[in-house]
Nucleic acid binder design. Structure first.
Length: 432
DNA sequence: TCTGGGGTCCTAGGACCC
DNA sequence: TCTGGGGTCCTAGGACCC
């Protein structure tokens, strides 16, 4: 038995904790570069704003409907997430943190009424952290996910589901006919693992609701679609196929990619950007105790612009696996020089670290040259410590350039809220 | 003028091995 | 007319998730 605890409109809810005046008003949080809406309050959803809607297409709603748009403040959301997760963990013996705003809880061995316990945790998160969330409970993770969707929808759109399923929905407590009714009222697209493409294919075959999908023959689904969808069907039928992952697995790839605030044409500017991306990726790499074997760099123009398009990437193997910022930046910059062509308005660049391996495994080598200098590892640890203690960007590679407006490529964030919980200077002050 | 960022898994097909 | 059998590794592409 699993529960899924999921924050409602999470980024918007985080902002509202510190700006309660936003409650009741349509609010969206924008992606990097203030590009498109990645979180919407219920009021914003009611205005018809779609997930991912470009800001320039909905900006007129600020005037006409009082829509408030904020730049994404990921430091704030990450910190609020940690607080929410620690309370959600109280629901059962195991927790999988699935994304920034949702976690699965293992309910095995939990006694008492699960629905009541769900309500208690929900209220505690709302009281202590200020984040509204919904709880879904089911025999499998897929059913818990679906239950959570139903809990949210029942609250947001009264009449869509029985009233008692709002906020906390325990599908395992329903009678079989009641469960069927609820599944029949749920679009197949809402099932975890069914995306746009597969939903369209299913509909063509007359599979419209979650109930229709649950009634399919798993073997047929495997033949016609895939083993992935087969698992989804079995999970809907109550057979657990997807396990709880208590510890996050080591990443197999680490990426850092960004769109630019303005089009970039010069190699020098690109070099600064790529240096910063590579430095950040190398830091993430060390944080999970890995080494990278390859570095991928790409640059590209905007596919939305009519001008000449350009998109190139290159993979450069490292001489030996490394987590050294200097080594990774050097590889990234020489890769960049290899693919760069002047004359294009580049909109985006990025780096990916590939062929990751644990830093505890070191391949011996037949090499008469000197090996990796051991003091470099200590240098990297020192840099990470300094940046941890005094803030990101305290110690950087010189080729990243100096921060400030001078940098042509930095992203646009015109509506960023303060780091209320992560920066001393931004901490709210209570006055008597 | 203006359209995010970071991941995972699975499959099919080709190259290659003995 | 008729050309084995069993396997691995790699890559590109497609699908999904938040």
């Amino acid at each position: 038995m699993y529960a899924l605890v999921d924050g409602n409109n999470f980024y918007v809810s985080c902002e509202r904790v510190f700006r309660p005046s936003l409650v009741g008003h349509p609010v969206v949080v924008l992606s990097n570069n203030d590009g498109c809406a990645i979180a919407r309050s219920n009021e914003a959803k009611a205005l018809g704003i779609a997930m991912g809607a470009p800001w320039f297409e909905i900006a007129h709603l600020a005037e006409s409907a009082g829509l408030v748009a904020l730049s994404a403040n990921f430091a704030l959301y990450g910190d609020m997430s940690d607080r929410m997760m620690s309370l959600a963990a109280g629901l059962g013996p195991g927790q999988e943190i699935y994304s920034i705003d949702e976690s699965f809880i293992d309910l095995d061995g939990v006694r008492g009424c699960l629905t009541q316990r769900g309500h208690k945790v929900r209220e505690r998160i709302l009281d202590w952290i200020g984040i509204p969330c919904c709880v879904g409970i089911g025999v499998t993770k897929t059913l818990a996910k679906l239950a959570n969707h139903i809990a949210k929808t029942a609250e947001r759109k009264p009449g869509s589901y029985p009233e008692h399923l709002a906020l906390v929905c325990n599908l395992a407590a329903l009678t079989p006919p009641a469960l069927q009714e609820v599944l029949a009222a749920t679009e197949v697209r809402e099932v975890w693992g069914v995306g746009r493409r597969i939903a369209a294919q299913l509909k063509e075959s007359g599979i419209h609701s979650a109930l229709d999908l649950a009634r399919l023959d798993p073997a047929m689904v495997r033949r016609r679609w895939s083993v992935v969808l087969e698992r989804t069907v079995r999970e809907l039928q109550g057979l657990a196929c997807i396990e709880l992952e208590l510890a996050p697995a080591r990443k197999q790839e680490i990426a850092c990619t960004r769109s630019f605030g303005h089009p970039v044409t010069h190699l020098a500017d690109l070099g600064e950007a790529v240096t910063e991306f590579a430095s950040r990726a190398a830091h993430k790499l060390r944080a999970q105790g890995s080494l990278a074997g390859q570095v991928l760099v790409f640059i590209r123009t905007s596919p939305f612009r009519p001008q000449a398009q350009f998109s190139r990437s290159i993979i450069t193997p490292l001489r030996r696996p490394s987590a050294d910022t200097g080594v990774i930046v050097a590889a990234a910059l020489s890769s960049l020089r290899a693919i760069y062509r002047p004359g294009y308005h580049l909109a985006r660049a990025g780096i990916m670290l590939l062929e990751l391996q644990p830093n505890t495994v070191l391949q011996g080598e037949l090499d008469l040259q000197e090996g990796a200098a051991p003091q470099r590892t200590r240098l990297m640890t020192t840099i990470d410590d300094l940046n941890q203690r005094y803030g990101r960007g305290t110690v950087i590679m010189a080729s990243a350039g100096l921060a400030g407006d001078r940098r042509a490529w930095t992203m646009k964030q015109e509506r960023r809220t303060p780091g209320y919980t992560t920066c001393w200077a931004d901490m709210p002050v209570v006055r008597a």
